[in-house]
Design a binder for these strands. Structure first.
Length: 217
DNA sequence: GCGACAG
DNA sequence: ATCTTGTCGC
């Protein structure tokens, strides 16, 4: 399907309405058991045709990978800023439904989103599982630094919707997805930063998507 | 109308 | 995200 055909067949206003609906279900309180297993998800793409989505399950706090699984399928939805979840989340949800874990780590924003439902929040709410979003670039919000803390503020309410962490000299935008607070999400992500810019589980699944891509193209 | 804009 | 060589910097 061409990019134009996808864009016509994809109903943007209905997608936005669904986000507004799902965002009401987000819980911004710590509602999770002791973290023993993390599920991390990421994707890479082959041209504009195929998506390779990967889930990795990691032991915490050792960060050893216990298992992984992937899907290679046709891309059905175009990338539109703010609507990333409609393109990638269906694959993550399918992969995650078969796994056992305590929290989900997603490459993309949580509530630091124009309608407070970035892909991490989307996936968390659909599965009703704790989730955290980690993005490399800002999508929504105003950045404010107070002392040693850099936060993402919602200019509408002036509430803190995420924190910006420095990792290897670069910024990481962390925001809660579901069933976790801003503070806990940031502490959790900090504990996953070791020798790479990305938190270890995301670094590993990102590498897996790229390795699989080499193998299948 | 103009700028911003995850992956 | 992806297309892509050499190249600047730690």
């Amino acid at each position: 399907m061409s990019k134009l055909a996808m864009r016509i067949y994809f109903n943007v206003s209905k997608a936005i309405a669904l986000q507004r609906h799902l965002s009401k279900k987000v819980v911004l309180a710590d509602k999770y058991d002791k973290i023993r297993r993390i599920a991390a998800v990421d994707s890479s793409f082959i041209g504009n045709k195929k998506i390779i989505a990967v889930v990795g399950v990691f032991e915490y706090p050792s960060l050893d990978m216990l298992e992984y699984e992937y899907i290679i399928d046709d891309i059905r939805i175009p990338y539109i800023p703010g609507l990333l979840a409609f393109r990638e989340a269906p694959f993550y949800i399918k992969l995650l439904s078969k796994k056992s874990f305590d929290i989900i780590l997603v490459d993309g924003h949580g509530i630091a989103h124009p309608r407070f439902l970035g892909i991490a929040a989307h996936v968390g709410v659909i599965l009703n599982k704790p989730s955290v979003g980690v993005a490399k670039r800002k999508l929504y919000g105003s950045i404010k630094t107070l002392g040693n803390k850099t936060m993402i503020l919602d200019p509408k309410s002036n509430k803190i919707i995420g924190l910006v962490l420095k990792s290897r000299g670069k910024d990481l935008y962390v925001s809660p997805g579901h069933r976790i607070t801003v503070e806990s999400a940031a502490l959790f992500v900090k504990s996953l930063i070791k020798n790479y810019y990305l938190p270890v589980p995301l670094y590993i699944v990102d590498k897996l998507t790229k390795d699989l891509k080499r193998k299948y193209r």
